[in-house]
């Protein structure tokens, strides 16, 4: 990304990089819970039984949604803290 011109360089850049790192990490978990455990990796998890079926089925119908919830609240908590740490909060 062409992050060139800015006067508030160092702090603004650090804050944005930290935000991007957080987004990358959380989106990997997001994809792993839904596309991974819920769909493509389901055969690999078929040995783990949950309520008469396998873990992949549980992830597809319940688990992924619960993971999404945790991800959004974690992001909100973490970013609101980063805002204060970098002095860019409202």
């Amino acid at each position: 990304m062409a992050d060139t011109t800015n006067k508030a360089a160092s702090d603004g850049q650090g804050y944005w990089k930290a935000n991007l790192r957080l987004i990358y990490t959380l989106l990997i978990i997001w994809a792993l819970a839904s596309f991974g455990f819920g769909i493509l990796l389901r055969p690999a998890l078929s040995g783990i039984e949950v309520g008469g079926t396998d873990l992949g089925f549980w992830f597809a119908q319940q688990g992924s949604i619960l993971v999404f919830l945790v991800l959004i609240f974690f992001y909100a908590w973490r970013m609101n803290k980063l805002d204060r740490d970098y002095g860019v909060d409202e």
């Binding site: 987004i23 959380l26 839904s34 819920g38 089925f57 992924s64 999404f68 959004i72 992001y75």
Partner: peptide, 21 residues
């Protein structure tokens, strides 16, 4: 059955994108 779990994941997972992006 299982295949239509797409609706459950798809219509909720979009909120993660919306919240972060």
């Amino acid at each position: 059955g299982y295949n239509n779990s797409s609706f459950l994941m798809g219509w909720t997972g979009g909120y993660v994108l919306m919240a972060m992006l």
